[in-house]
Design a protein around this nucleic acid. Structure first.
Lengths: 266, 266
DNA sequence: CGGCAAATTGAAGTATTTCAACGTCGGTGG
DNA sequence: CCACCGACGTTGAAATACTTCAATTTGCCG
């Protein structure tokens, strides 16, 4: 099967467009920690993740980079429209990417509303996720933030790239795709505190640390409580996790939040 | 002048489309703390802020609401596409809104690529801002987060709705549009800590507290340092602030971040 | 095995949370 | 008009959590 057709996010795109996409696509493989994309004038392009996990980082004033998100199978990255959105993309694990040059891709967008909608949906998803991060980061306790991070990882990356493996009795193995220092930056704290938080969760019996980057979650509900997300909200989308069938790449939504009661006027 | 034409974000939309927009628009005024939008099946609509500041809040599992952003003149809100993006919009100050019913608005989108692009750009902007919040929230010290918050307020809301007033000698008066409790949630801490952080900044001479919701920033550069944003990054966009001409609503970008050096391969 | 990077642990100093109390402002009803 | 109330902001003090600096361990690779 062609690389373009492997991408389930593109399944609604008409065949002629898919053909054009196919022709202009380049399949690339990256090793862990290789840089995939830097903001720069030359060689602008967009890409879809086929396999692996990428980290998206913002370049700060002083040259440091700050992780602001993770990308997985089906996610899109790169600048379709102009604007100073300045971040780096790097492979957090070995990864396969489908790349397109920006300009011809943009032209295709004009010809295919389906493709355009996929791009749009991708941005909306990113926005949702960024807001989930915000709420996670607003947790005043680091242990809570870490618990929330594990839950996001577990729910969003379920059945993707072996990040999450389900086990018999409702426990989950989660592969942490970034190191402690990056995780510390992401969660707004220090290496040492992250380390202590992991071990505190382990001492409470909520998780076990098989290896520094391999965590077993014993009870999702309990961990959700630790994260300040008592029952109702997350449990639904997480029960999917511990039980059976999975969702596809685009649909792994908003783990931290409940569905609302409604009473709008507008 | 018609309400639709007042909106400078719509200036690139062709006249016939503007006319249609005009016909389906409703101008509404809201008082401070009035609810503008709740997620709900009935009466879905989209809106543009004409005047005032709105707060956007996510409804959490337990009924609490968590602020995840502020909207001002030119910003759009509401769901153009489906999806469980569940938040509430409330007036943080008295506000004027231009409202459209969702379905007819969507149809217009299909007819006008210009309008569509405006909507898209709005989402991209929101995404950028959400990421700025993430970086702000990743500051391990509350005082730093508060300083960052004040800077975001100052840069993004410059010359909008009297949120920011410039004074002679490079100092700024900023009107805080949310109360301490909401600000505490937004910054991931408690009322008391926010209060202490304000007074700590005042004791350092970085700000003065004219009234609990009226802050004078004495030196933006110094405050930026406090926020962990030393010089280069923010100072450019902030110098605009303390000096002369202003940018329009859509362009107030990424205050926290620098322009990158580039070296991408892609 | 040596060397390096990442993770962990300890201990002291600081910052934040928590609980409790108090002050202030604006509105409401007597 | 004034007393009272409730919402909001502020302050204090003790308990807790986090940061910081320093040292040690672990795992990996040549």
């Amino acid at each position: 099967m062609s690389a373009v057709k492997e991408l389930s996010v593109l399944k609604n795109v008409p065949n002629d467009i898919l053909g054009d996409l196919e022709k202009m696509s380049r399949l690339r493989s990256y090793n862990k920690n290789q840089r995939i994309y830097s903001p720069g004038r030359e060689k602008e392009c967009v890409g879809f993740v086929l396999q692996g996990v990428l980290r998206m980082q913002k370049l700060l004033y002083d040259g440091r980079e700050h992780i602001i998100g993770l990308l997985a199978e089906g996610d899109m990255f790169g600048q379709v429209f102009d604007g100073p959105r300045t971040f780096t993309i790097e492979a957090a694990t070995n990864a396969k990417i489908l790349e397109f040059k920006r300009e011809p891709f943009k032209e295709l967008l004009l010809r295919s509303p389906e493709l355009e909608q996929i791009v749009f949906m991708n941005v909306l998803n990113e926005l949702d996720r960024a807001r989930d991060w915000m709420i996670l980061l607003a947790n005043p306790r680091i242990r809570g933030r870490l618990a929330g991070f594990l839950l996001i990882l577990a729910s969003r990356f379920a059945n993707i790239d072996h990040v999450v493996r389900k086990r018999r009795e409702g426990s989950l193995d989660v592969q942490i795709p970034i190191n402690r220092l990056d995780l510390a930056h992401l969660l707004g704290t220090r290496r040492e505190t992250i380390s202590r938080a992991f071990h505190a969760l382990a001492d409470n019996g909520h998780i076990s640390i098989t290896r520094s980057d391999l965590i077993r979650i014993h009870d999702i509900e309990v961990l959700a409580e630790e994260a300040g997300i008592e029952e109702s909200g997350i449990s639904l989308s997480l029960k999917d996790l511990t039980m059976t069938g999975q969702k596809s790449g685009l649909s792994g939504r908003s783990a931290l939040l409940a569905t609302p009661g409604s009473r709008g006027r507008c």
